[in-house]
Simulated assay, not measured.
Amino acid sequence: MSGPIVRNYKGGSIVYFEKDKAEDIFVLQKGRVVLTYTNINGVELKEDVKIGEFFGVKSALGRYPREETAQVIGTATVLVFKVPEFEKFVSDKTHLIIKMLKVFSSQLRQVHRQVREILGQGEAKNPAFELMNVAEVFYKNGNYEHAAYAFNQYLSHYPDGQYVDRAKQLLDLASRKTPFPLTIPELVYKPEPGAQNGKLQEMLKTMAVQKENNVSSVDPNSIQALYDKASTFMNAGKYGDASDIFKSVSERTDSVTQEEEQFVENSLFYMGKSSFKSGDNSSAISIFSGYIKKYPKGQLLKETVYHLALATEASGEKEKAIQLYQKVAILPPLDDSISEDAKQKIKGVK
């Protein structure tokens, strides 16, 4: 076994794209790499890889496609392991294994909280209903692939269930990426007589208990819990509620951890985006300008300048908007979709 190799990347390079086949595991040796991914609420997030930190581990070990895009900012040097090399490397390094398990556990707890927040339910009712409800929540939030998978699971486990016709109809629409139809009545809970899939029921009961335990130990006023709640409101189109919570998070200064600092920073951007989405361009411009002053090297700087340009254009200040779009187009990385959108906007405004 030859061991890891060293790769050098230029600024703007993509180490891997979301949904790429996962075969390698990476360690950042020098420079900066940013991971971009979408959380369960449909909100795009960015995360910096720290020097000496592994990335691409879960997808490579699990042998499933990448869940995020890894992009180089500036230049970077990384070590690249094949899975067998990585397994051999960590086999006698217990501290690394424990560290990775803690990270994965934390991510799972976050997903549990977000799912519970989206469902808006206190306790599980019936496995068949829960499965349909999860499928429809995914569908309403525009996550067509997950929705279609969940509808298929319902039809597979409950071929004679009371929601079969509804599941078939919504599966067909979701598979064609048609928005959730407004004419469909609200899903109503009905007991499922004869639903005897013991393994599935037991699994869902166990998950419900685990979720209860996780939620009971989470401080609802913690930065991450509030951020997740605001993201849910924003994704549901409740921009006023989202903006209020993002504002409270962006102003937090009490014993903020390094991990929470990113939530605080992101909240200022998403507060501005909520204002923009609700049509309050004046507030959006003020908030985006505040982000740029406070975080001149922030992870969401380029997105912030772009949205500032959008709000400025919507306010009728076309010349200023063009100047902002021009600035967006030259901010690194130069070949991403935001730069392309900015260039098209310049042509459109002119």
Rank of each mutant, 00 (worst) to 15 (best):
L155M: 08
L155G: 00
L155I: 04
L155E: 01
S156K: 15
Y158D: 08
D160F: 09
G161S: 07
Q162E: 07
Q162S: 07
Y163D: 02
Y163P: 05
Y163N: 04
V164T: 14
D165V: 11
D165H: 13
R166Y: 01
R166T: 00
A167Y: 00
A167Q: 02
A167H: 03
K168W: 01
K168N: 05
K168L: 04
Q169K: 11
Q169Y: 07
L170V: 06
L170E: 02
L170Q: 04
L170A: 04
L171C: 05
D172Y: 13
L173N: 04
L173E: 08
A174P: 14
S175T: 14
R176M: 11
R176V: 03
R176K: 15
R176Q: 15
L182Q: 13
P185L: 04
E186I: 03
L187P: 06
V188L: 07
K190G: 00
K190R: 14
K190L: 10
K190T: 08
P191M: 06
P193D: 04
P193Y: 01
A195E: 04
Q196H: 07
N197T: 08
N197R: 08
N197V: 11
N197Y: 09
K199L: 14
L200S: 11
L200N: 13
L200K: 13
Q201I: 14
E202N: 13
E202V: 03
E202T: 06
M203N: 09
L204H: 06
L204M: 15
K205G: 07
M207L: 13
